[in-house]
Write a protein that binds this DNA or RNA. Structure first.
Length: 581
RNA sequence: GACCCCGUAGCUCAGCAGGAUAGAGCGCAGGAUUCCUAAUCCUGAGGCCAUGAGUUCGAAUCUCAUCGGGGUCACCA
């Protein structure tokens, strides 16, 4: 049950009754939310102000007319018009108790919604080049994309999680050659890795596997044939490596889409270019060199250009390189056309900061290939600076000695890594301090939230100890007399729980998983705060050995807090331990 | 030269399809344990929301300019 959505609907209905001429557009702008200052009430709406202008009326008049309609509502104890035309509601206690009941009844589905209306959305994330293990730079986008996909699925979208394997470029040839060296090494040769090759020792086992499979026979084959065999093997090995890195963070994709399958005679790129040409979205022309600094090897030539400027980009984009091969962007247009033809009218791409210049081009491509039917949201994850005790952590460039994703996860754990990365807006650069992330204090929001969850268990353990006869089964809690939860502290906590559905829905539609992380922190804080009140006031304790009715009701409340914490942590992919050790 | 992101408390950051007195943590000063894991809680000090203009009933939030910080800039992927 989402009280905010419920009242938004009631307010809209009331307005339609008052002003039949009102437009849906105006109604859609109505927001019902908790007022910034809780002293103003439980709910606040801007409805009168939003609607007044198109109606040509005074907002305060609309507000008071609207408020009058709610005066008789049994769910509402007070309605006030405030400021320029806000309407503030205070809700009757039974409404909050209903919320509590609905949490127990809905369990893991409390917060689930259908704002996505079953629409298919393709969320593409990670898409790291398969040339080695994942390093920290990839981690943020991986976690962000994964959480966003979960959030959208929970909010009623039909989500496909996709990984685009860039396995077609020249870097893959270099990878194959690098692997070839490791193969020779496995055969006993002393090798030297030339600059520009991949030096990482993660290729050593691939070389050995090649030896096991082929013996020395690859050396006797023509180079092209050998390299082609090596390429297949190493790509598979690298993708295994990447998948296992991702698995450490509990990240899994539904579709791994290979760029290679787009290439080739009569492939998707060919077909796409043909199609673009038929649609007059391509022409032969010249580009101006970029102003300011002209690249040294600038070559003024006539080339095949996509009319990106017709779709909001700054400049038309080349599709064919001077050596005749397709550009990366040509493949990407084909790829996004492929997504569209697979039935995705909504796409989300999660990219690193170094791709920010790519965004308008990608949007242009999607707009073009779908004739404006599909939309794409590109979420850029800004850089993460690794810190150790407040000092930037130097990454050595020597021999692939970058900080690996698996190093970070091994060092601080998946939960802390995920939560910290999500506890920040994606479009702001962030520092990631190992020392802080490992620390188990309030400084570290992960433990703060997990501790709140663990505390819900310790309450139940305490009850089992102090009131051994008390029935704490789910059915007993469902039957609890929650009308006993009438103190201000109880209601405050329930109101915090009631926020959850609107937080999820807004986070999903804004594509901002960090809102979930911040909410969980607030809920944990509300729960910890309630706990401490029991120190002053015995009536507010969770466990009252001489009042089993009240204790049972409180346990129902604690159970609801636990449920919401679990629901949120699950969306973020963070575990909810019963005990912290 | 152009484009993208950021600039909010000493520090790290929320708040931004405009709304009522701008929030949290850390740090600082003081306090709280006969329910529970103090891994917690409470109180206080601390702000020209980078600067300047504009839009309007109303701007941290939208627009433009300026200044700072980061990222990117034909044919790499």
């Amino acid at each position: 049950m989402n009280v905010f959505a419920l009242f938004a609907a009631r307010v809209a209905d009331a307005l339609k009754g008052l002003y039949p001429s009102i437009t849906e557009e105006a109604l859609s702008r109505i927001v019902v939310e908790p007022p910034r200052d809780a002293a103003h009430g439980d709910l606040s709406t801007n409805a009168a102000m939003v609607v007044a202008k198109p109606l040509g009326k005074n907002p305060r008049d609309v507000a008071s007319a609207l408020a009058d309609l709610f005066k008789a509502d049994a769910d509402v104890t007070s309605v006030e018009v405030a400021g320029p035309g806000f309407i503030n509601f205070r809700l009757a206690t039974p409404v909050w108790h209903e919320v509590l009941k609905s949490i127990a009844a809905q369990g893991g589905d409390f917060g689930r919604s259908n704002v996505g209306m079953g629409e298919r959305v393709n969320v593409e994330y990670v898409s790291a080049n398969p040339t080695g293990p994942m390093h920290v730079g990839h981690t943020r986008g991986a976690v962000f994309g994964d959480a966003l996909a979960s959030l959208m699925a929970y909010s009623g979208y039909d989500v496909t999680r996709e990984y685009y394997i860039n396995d077609a470029g020249s870097q893959i040839d270099t990878l194959a050659r690098s692997t070839m060296l490791r193969y020779r090494e496995a055969l006993g040769e002393t090798i030297e890795i030339p600059p520009g090759f991949y030096p990482g020792d993660y290729l050593v086992p691939v070389g050995e596997a090649l030896k096991a499979e082929f013996g020395s026979s690859l050396l006797e084959k023509p180079e092209a044939e050998a390299l082609s065999l090596v390429k297949d093997r190493v790509l598979a090995a690298m993708m295994d490596l990447i998948r296992s890195d991702l698995a450490k963070l509990n990240i899994h994709h539904d579709v791994f889409f290979s760029e290679r399958q787009l290439h080739g005679q009569g492939g998707d790129i060919d077909l796409t270019l043909e199609w673009l040409r038929a649609e007059d979205m391509i022409y032969q022309g010249r580009l101006e060199p970029p102003k300011g600094k002209t690249p040294e090897d600038w070559e003024d030539r006539e080339q095949t250009l996509f009319r990106a400027t017709n779709y909001g980009d700054d400049v038309d984009r080349p599709l064919v390189k001077s050596n005749g091969a397709y550009t990366y962007f040509a493949a990407d247009i084909a790829y996004h056309r492929n997504k569209y033809l697979r039935g995705f009218n909504h796409m989300v791409n999660v990219l690193g900061a170094d791709h920010s210049g790519y965004v308008s081009r990608l949007k242009a491509a999607v707009k073009a290939v779908s004739h404006g039917e599909a939309d794409i949201d590109v979420r850029i994850c800004q850089l993460v600076r690794l810190m150790k005790n407040g000092e930037p952590f130097k990454m050595s460039k020597r021999s692939g000695d970058l900080v690996l994703l698996s190093d970070v996860v091994d060092e601080v754990g998946s939960d802390a890594t995920r939560f910290m990365l999500l506890y920040r807006r994606n479009d702001a650069a962030m520092d990631f301090d190992f020392a802080v992330v490992k620390e188990q204090t309030r400084d570290n929001p992960v433990f703060y939230v997990q501790y709140a969850h663990a505390r819900t268990y310790s309450v139940f353990r305490k009850v089992a100890e102090e009131m051994p006869g008390l029935d704490t089964s789910a059915s007993a809690l469902a039957a609890a007399d929650i009308s006993l939860l009438s103190s201000e502290a109880d209601l405050e906590l329930i109101k915090a729980l009631a926020q959850w559905p609107r937080i999820v829905a807004s986070a999903a539609s804004a594509h901002e998983p960090h809102r979930v992380a911040f909410y969980l922190y607030e809920l944990a804080s509300a729960f910890h705060g309630f706990w401490a009140k029991g120190n002053q006031d015995v009536a507010l304790r969770f466990v009252n050995a001489d009042d089993s009715m009240l204790t049972t009701a409180r346990l129902a409340l604690v159970g609801a807090v636990r449920q919401v914490l679990v629901n949120g942590l699950t969306l973020l992919g963070v575990s909810a331990p019963e005990e912290l050790s």
